[in-house]
Design a protein around this nucleic acid. Structure first.
Lengths: 245, 245
DNA sequence: ATCCGCTAGCGTATCTGATACAGAGTTTTA
DNA sequence: TAAAACTCTGTATCAGATACGCTAGCGGAT
């Protein structure tokens, strides 16, 4: 029987810790899914996703590469586990906090989360996030927006909107912060040279205005994100008031 | 002299076709950057990014793997070229079109673009998009929003917001459409099972309401995106009217 | 008590893909 | 017409994922 190399069912099982009941025989297990995941996570946090190889993780744990496959069916699955493991429980709304503040707190926390684990957004997405922690965060966002008066498909839509723009802007911020020193400056330089006023009038006009050159450093991007969210919530309030949703 | 393996400068050079003047000596070139890029692009469109390897591209062209390196300094650079090559010129706004319609047309076109080249959003971003076509699209979006009354950092922020949420939602839609047949259904099934009303009350409430189970198929996601953009623009109008920006 | 069968961890092998390097043939310029 | 500058080829290297078969530890049925 070939090793079950994955599939959604297996992934979900692993993520939710539903241990397929295994016989108690054989040598005691020296490792565990959690231990493997933790080790991989530590490597990624310290040296980036590229440093995570099965060999490296095994070395870190003092085991052979192949023994990891006793716990994790493939590297891809391991990465899914890492992502969920990197995700702490979502922030708890404070008493009396407005729903808008709740949303903004969520955005800030998400921003922080991605910056704390700069590799997370490099993982090319394949599946919807079905890990327990991922789901908890999404639930938290839905909760806040629901308080704001949204329901059903609209609720889902706006939540996705906020989620994806937060992810996207965080990814940009991280790319700029992570690149070799000077990459950002080099990019700005290139931008300045290429965004000529004839072909790119609007963009060209922004370059001096934006200080670092149109692709801003971290804090400014966050401010931009926050503004976008605020305006979206403004629009949403109007929408709800008008009686839809 | 080692082959220049890249760096922003080289990338930009390639993207903008600034041919570093090469001597006219030696055998006539059988290939060109464009030809290599085109071949790679065709493979990616037909079989996904995973099918693009240097060997495969070379085979397609009837050359050796290594000969490609005469034209393209590395695979990563080739991928950047592919992305820009996959990007047609942005849509041209119609006469008399409102700025809001201009934005919405932009969003729709972007959506279509990503769906036409389903591999583009799988590329883990490293650099800001400096290719000429990428820049042209961004300029188009800036132009529309500028007409709406935004300036400077606010303009940049809202443009990024729209860009990232469009990318993000398109990515979700593509993942669902691309997975093995049944993956989406399986995910919904899992979601239904895992999103228990006690721990995930809001999410749980959405599952039946959302038809396919909370993670909607293509058209519905597009509707959601469009709604989000509309509300954001609503908020933006208020903001502009209030005199900021 | 004991032995059987399950299983963890090991060593090694295979396969795929990127990229280095050296050599041979081609074309232009001094 | 030789030297120089290139292009393309063939082969080698290196990394990383994962298959496979072996050995030995351990719990449970005899």
């Amino acid at each position: 029987m070939p090793r079950d190399t994955g599939g959604m069912a297996r992934t979900v099982e692993l993520l939710w810790g539903v241990s397929t009941p295994r016989g108690t025989r054989g040598p005691r297990q020296g490792l565990s899914v959690a231990a493997v995941t933790r080790a991989a996570l530590a490597i990624a946090d310290a040296e980036g996703l590229g440093a995570v190889s099965m060999q490296r993780v095994a070395k870190e744990l003092g085991y052979t590469t192949m023994s990891l496959y006793n716990y994790v069916p493939s590297k891809d699955q391991l990465i899914e586990l890492m992502i969920d493991a990197a995700t702490p429980p979502p922030p708890i709304p404070e008493d009396g906090e407005s729903w808008r503040d709740e949303v903004e707190r969520w955005v800030r926390a998400t921003w922080g989360l991605y910056h704390a684990h700069r590799w997370v957004l490099k993982v090319p997405t394949v599946n919807p996030p079905l890990g327990p922690n991922q789901m908890a965060w999404f639930e938290a966002l839905l909760h806040a927006l629901h308080r704001g008066g949204l329901e059903g498909a609209e609720l889902m839509a706006i939540a996705q909107h906020i989620l994806t723009s937060t992810r996207g802007q965080a990814a940009i911020s991280i790319d700029l912060a992570t690149g070799e020193d000077g990459t950002a400056a080099e990019a700005n330089e290139a931008l300045r040279r290429l965004a000529t006023p004839d072909r790119f009038p609007t963009l060209h006009g922004l370059i001096p205005a934006a200080g670092a050159g149109g692709f801003h450093p971290g804090a400014e991007i966050y401010e931009g994100l926050a503004l976008g969210v605020r305006l979206l919530l403004d629009g949403m309030e109007g929408y709800v008031r008008r009686g839809a949703g």
